[in-house]
């Protein structure tokens, strides 16, 4: 999104589509290597791998949504706050009562869709820069939320906790859900007209408009999808944490991390190129880093330094051959 005049070269395209495979391979090598090196071979059995995949869920769901927004050439900084709103709202409405689960889920989906609509409208209609629009909406959401709730609010019933804590045949519902959602997103992007138009808008908004695409509607749609995915992450966190607190999204740094994994996954920050597979691979890399740092006993501060360097290098690995200018 902050790139201008990024020209396509066949080479970057190939590298871009290779990104998911390379990231996947890299993550596997890192994870297996660390497990063998430290002798923690139990991390390689089914339970260990499921634990690794479980680390992907919260970031993964919101990153799938962020992929749509970034593909459209926009960005969403409000997702972390949206996640907090969703988590608190869900557990506050449920108050531990199973019969309140459907209304709570419906309310979260409705509010998150509304937030996405506002984000999209600000950007597409009022032409507010997407960073500022979503930063501002995020601040507004967080302020209202923190003014109303100061701690964990309400609780979710045991039935709803099954979302995060239950499994079928060793595969947690939440992990299966993440991959199902990813498949749905891939289908939306690859097999629908909306998806094709999204790529067109991200690649060249003016060209898309001249070709008769309602670019504003596409942009709003992408933002609604992103906000709803943040709402889903909030629901998952409420289930996993048993309740929602107004800081769960911010503490998770889901805004910047979701952007980082999407871009690491090979989606152009300027929009128009990339996809779901890369994002999932980026999320896997982050989950692997968490697990590997634990296994190797890397302490918290060097972890920060390494993570920063890895983010830059992973993105640089396929941007550095780009022609033209990037700001």
């Amino acid at each position: 999104m902050s790139a201008t005049h990024l020209q396509s070269s066949p080479f970057t395209v190939r590298r871009g589509s290779l990104a998911p495979v390379l990231l996947l391979a890299g993550s596997v090598v890192l994870y297996v290597g660390a497990a063998l090196w430290t002798g923690e071979t139990k991390m390689l059995d089914a339970e260990g791998v499921v634990g690794l995949l479980q680390r992907m869920v919260a970031l993964g769901v919101v990153a799938l949504g962020q992929t749509f927004v970034i593909l459209a050439g926009s960005i969403d900084l409000s997702v972390a706050n949206m996640i907090s709103v969703a988590a608190v709202l869900a557990s506050y409405i449920m108050q531990g009562r199973p019969d309140m689960v459907p209304p709570a889920v419906a309310a979260v989906l409705a509010i998150s869709a509304l937030v996405g609509l506002v984000n999209g409208a600000l950007i597409a209609r009022l032409q507010v820069n997407s960073l500022i629009a979503t930063l501002g909406v995020g601040l507004i959401l967080q302020g209202l939320l923190s003014a109303s709730f100061t701690n964990f609010a309400g609780s979710v019933p045991p039935e709803f906790q099954l979302v995060a804590y239950s499994a079928f045949g060793g595969v947690p519902y939440s992990v299966a859900g993440l991959f199902a959602l990813a498949a749905l997103c891939a289908w939306l992007l690859r097999a629908t007209r909306f998806g094709a138009h999204l790529y067109a808008v991200g690649g060249n908004a003016e060209g898309a408009r001249l070709a008769g695409i309602r670019t504003d509607l596409i942009l709003i749609g992408a933002h609604v999808i992103c906000a709803v995915s943040a709402g889903l992450t909030g629901l998952y966190l409420a289930s996993r944490l048993r309740s929602g607190a107004p800081w769960v999204g911010r503490d998770g740094v889901y805004d910047l991390e979701s952007i980082a994994v999407v871009v690491i996954g090979g989606t152009l920050l300027a929009g128009g190129r990339g996809g779901v597979a890369g994002t999932l691979a980026g999320v896997l890399l982050f989950a692997t880093l968490d697990a590997v740092f634990n296994m190797l006993g890397v302490s918290a501060y060097p972890q920060l330094v390494l993570r920063g360097a890895i983010v830059v290098l992973a993105v640089a690995a396929y941007t550095f051959r780009a022609k033209g200018h990037v700001a």
């Binding site: 709202l89 506050y92 309310a107 509010i111 509304l114 507004i140 959401l141 209202l144 939320l145 003014a147 109303s148 709730f149 100061t150 701690n151 609010a153 309400g154």
Partner: peptide
């Protein structure tokens, strides 16, 4: 909408 959903909801 945001206000309506949160106002007075303080636990």
């Amino acid at each position: 909408a945001a206000l309506a959903s949160f106002a007075g909801a303080a636990l």
